Amino acid sequence: MSNPRRRLAILSGVGAAAAVLFTGVRRRPAPAYAPAHDADWAQAEDREAQLAAVQRGEPGSGGYYGTWKTGSPDAAVAAHIEFQYAGMEHQSETALSGMWLFLATEVLFFGGLFLLYMIYRQQYADAFIEASRHTELVIGSINTVLLVTSSAVFSWGLGRAQAGDNRRLFWACVAVVVLGSAFLLLKGWEWHDDLDEHLFPGRGFSITGPNAGGAELFWFFYFVATGLHGVHMIVGVGLVAWLAWAARQRRFSAGYFTPVEVVGLYWSFVDMVWLCLYPMLYLVDRASA
């Protein structure tokens, strides 16, 4: 990782993903060109006029330095292309690469948590079985159905975005926000019940006997894992709500839907994390109960 160009490429990818998520629907001003000699002023004025035309998204205005041909796909979506990219394909690939890099760090983060679970699951097998039987299986199962359904709806909405159908994308995002919010409400209700039953590790923990120590470890993992997942869910619901607003403003088209793809990757990851947590928390040896 000592190569400066490799570091620059990685930072560019992460930056592109962030730019698409938070500033992608509006174009940042291109950097002004400062001529070094008086003879360059005419060329500078021509370039600034060309950049201004591109920023206004005028069809056929040409790209930076005249590289975009009249009527090209890039010219049609020029208002959405940031100044540092050669075209929409370059910008989209960079943004998606940045999101994949971010998700790779998330896999390492949750992977370490899951590894600790597996280690202690082997050491305190009976305690984990007993502790898991105090979880709310019905609520956990309903939440699983909600998240899987939300991912299916979002995938359908992505297809609508690729077709330039902002109206159907808007309603798909609204449905995902509703499903995600329902998940969070049910999880909050479940936490309330768990606390009422004194299942939070520490003084007054309700599970006693020889398995008490291992049961506390299970419930410590439960609250940490579901809490972190809940934070990711809140961020995801916010991002999808932003997509709904952007679709309502008709910001997307068949040539520009990168933000939908980037948010879709994040939402699918959050869904996959829950699909790992569900059997680990709710299905530990339930068949023998």
Rank of each mutant, 00 (worst) to 15 (best):
S12D: 14
F269E: 02
E136N: 14
R250L: 15
F183T: 02
V107Y: 07
Y64A: 14
W41M: 09
A32R: 13
S253R: 00
Y256K: 02
L158Q: 09
H232G: 10
I142W: 00
L11Q: 14
G71V: 15
E93I: 04
R5K: 13
L275G: 08
G264T: 01
M99P: 10
Q43W: 15
D194G: 13
V178F: 04
Q55W: 11
R26S: 04
A241L: 15
K69S: 11
A16V: 05
A53W: 07
Q123G: 12
V107N: 01
D38H: 12
E136D: 14
V176T: 00
A18R: 13
R160I: 02
T67N: 09
I119T: 15
F205K: 12
A19L: 12
A127C: 10
L283Y: 04
A36K: 04
R56C: 13
Q50H: 13
E58D: 15
A152K: 10
H192D: 06
R26G: 05
P73H: 04
P201A: 06
L11K: 08
D40I: 08
V20F: 04
W171I: 00
D271I: 12
V145E: 07
L265D: 01
G164T: 11
V176I: 01
P73A: 01
S97K: 11
L115E: 03
L51D: 09
W68K: 10
S151A: 10
M99K: 03
G227L: 11
N166V: 02
L281P: 02
F221I: 14
P73E: 03
A241N: 12
L281N: 03
Q50W: 03
E136T: 05
M99G: 05
L228M: 06
P279T: 05
A163W: 11
D126N: 13
L11V: 07
S92P: 06
L116E: 15
